[in-house]
Design a protein around this nucleic acid. Structure first.
Lengths: 346, 346
DNA sequence: GCGTATAATGTAAGCGCTTACATCACGTAA
DNA sequence: TTACGTGATGTAAGCGCTTACATTATACGC
């Protein structure tokens, strides 16, 4: 067996098998149109040469890639990782390959990645959230490529989505908390700029506050990046202020876990001295002590449905109605009635 | 502005700008070779048409994709997610795009993904671990495509690697544990089939046992899939056996956290009643109570170095020496001297 | 003004594949 | 035997791009 200088081509296979390139191509794509004896000969040559069709060439000739692209903010966020894993499994069943890229929460990188994926011939795209420069939307439209949004449900948006109502879900949680008597609410939010999930969750808290007839100054908001440590810092800032909150509502579980960690360090008992809530219901939420009150998001289900919806769009070239999934409040040990005092320990 | 039937091509741009396709191509690839006035005209046309070069065609003509492919077992494992994020950032700085696929720990899917990535013209590949069907190795060699292995250092393997010595690191941890007096060791390992990291970690424990002159029956091994819940189940099985171990060493932190959770449910105090160890040092390890004794793996550093090494291989077409990173034992609260009793609570 | 070096642009040949269409080899019916 | 239908295979034209090479424009020195 000789080692080829470079990857073998269709032509090499054709020569080895003593047929034309068309026959080889047919063996690979429509085997039933080739007589058995020939096919065997060709397949043998394919095996021996270790031939893999050149994707670029194939795409260019056939105008279809069976590839779906997805762009997520970061792979380090467990919620995306989980949803995407399910998404990929769903695609695989239908013969699609998933290509993933991440944007580090930066819209310029997201745009770059969108272009990269489109250029690679992605048949469809999965994007996270609706906040996006109109120019990119126009570009996507010009490319005439199906795009689905996940993790955020918004029937009024330009793009169809599979997700949940971040605003209403967070409001439900805030309603409950306020209903328990909390009047000073600290909020640790993810950066809202370019992130509708974060923005809407914050809006949900404000909705609840307004509904309860509380003043705007009932909430103190700190925005910070996604990490346990930054959550801890924000928590400390909130709790060492003049009038510390009796409950700290966090934009996601990771920030909340950071808050709980810092509470322990500060000698604050959760939930006696201060209540803490999260959002997402990642595994971590039920592992910490006390278990974290949060909003459960069905990430896997979302991934599966997104796969189904996007395949539908790609296969039949038609848009698809947005799908809303339920995200329910999950009461656990980290929330209690507010104490009589100001929330500081003795 | 008219909506094009399909994506605009180089030719469309050339026509719109009144130049040849070669000039447009040069504007995009070697702008300094085109006079300003022409370039402006061309770029304007590019903008207006929303032109994106067709990747397949470009690759076919230029024989280079600036794309690196990576295949990981699963995105849901935080260690891969973190290392890969760093890997991607490293690649981006050098103008490479990362394409990620996951194999669900199945070698047949991994092979499929390897072929998919190769077919897509990946200039290089990042793979996890050395366990792999020789046929795929041969295929990769025939394709003459640079491949780097991460998460496992093995200077003797066919492929160069950037990683740590799973066996020796785990042995170091086991040495320490045995040095503290533990004589009955329960092991919760990830599935070892096709997973050299799991296999080598287990081997490291056996090395330590042999070195200490203990019999083989000092260790009881349970293999299970990667999840908190399966770790919990395995832990229960170990602890309800006739002679429960005084220490349970887990193949990774996720299994260890599952074990700790189950310990709490069983009313066992960690580390008084039983010691528990992990591997990886994910964030979770220092969040649980007591903090988990584990082996710290520098995932980010590994990702960065892997990026550098693979780029070197791709750019200069030469192989690269394997790099070993240190993975150090991290003693924390979950390990203590064994009690006098059998490990069962009163 | 002319010749020449140099910069800017155009021309056209592929890159590896698919596929419409042409060709060929049979088998069947008249 | 001939004519023709059918199925297997070959031929060759692109797909959109890059790039070696050819051509044309510009600048400069004499």
């Amino acid at each position: 067996m000789t080692i080829p200088r470079s990857a073998p081509t269709l032509n090499d296979v054709a020569q080895a098998a003593g047929v034309s390139t068309a026959t080889v191509s047919r063996c690979l794509n429509t085997p039933e149109r080739v007589i058995d004896s020939t096919r065997e000969r060709v397949m043998k040559a394919v095996q021996e040469l270790g031939y893999t069709p050149n994707f670029g060439a194939r795409v260019m000739a056939a105008r279809r890639t069976n590839t779906i692209g997805a762009i997520i903010p970061t792979m380090e966020n467990a919620v995306f990782a989980r949803g995407l894993q399910a998404f990929q499994e769903g695609l695989r069943e239908s013969g699609f390959t998933l290509l993933v890229a991440s944007s580090s929460y930066r819209s310029d990188i997201e745009e770059e990645q969108i272009r990269a994926l489109v250029a690679r011939g992605a048949d469809g795209l999965l994007l996270i959230g609706h906040d996006r420069d109109p120019a990119i939307l126009a570009y996507l439209q010009a490319q005439n490529i199906p795009v689905l949004v996940a993790w955020s449900f918004d029937p009024g948006a330009l793009l169809p989505s599979v997700g949940f109502d971040n605003r209403r879900s967070m409001q439900a949680l805030a309603d409950t908390v306020i209903g328990m008597g909390h009047r000073r609410i600290g909020v640790i939010s993810a950066i809202t700029r370019g992130n509708d999930r974060a923005r809407l969750r914050l809006a949900g808290i404000r909705d609840a506050v307004a509904l309860a007839g509380l003043g705007e100054d009932a909430v103190t908001v700190i925005e910070t990046t996604y990490a346990i440590e930054t959550g801890a810092e924000a928590f400390e800032a909130l709790m060492t202020s003049q009038q510390p909150p009796t409950v700290v509502m966090c934009g996601n579980d990771v920030l909340a876990v950071g808050a709980m960690k810092k509470a322990r360090e500060l000698g604050l008992d959760v939930p006696r001295d201060v209540s803490i809530t999260g959002f997402d219901d990642i595994e971590l939420a039920s592992l910490v002590d006390p278990a974290l009150t949060t909003v459960h998001v069905p990430h896997r289900e979302m991934g599966r449905r997104a796969a189904r919806a996007l395949i539908e769009m790609v296969d039949h070239g038609r848009s698809v109605p947005s799908e809303e999934l339920a995200a329910n409040v999950c009461m656990r040990g980290s929330v209690a009635l507010p104490g009589r005092d100001t929330g500081a320990t003795a």
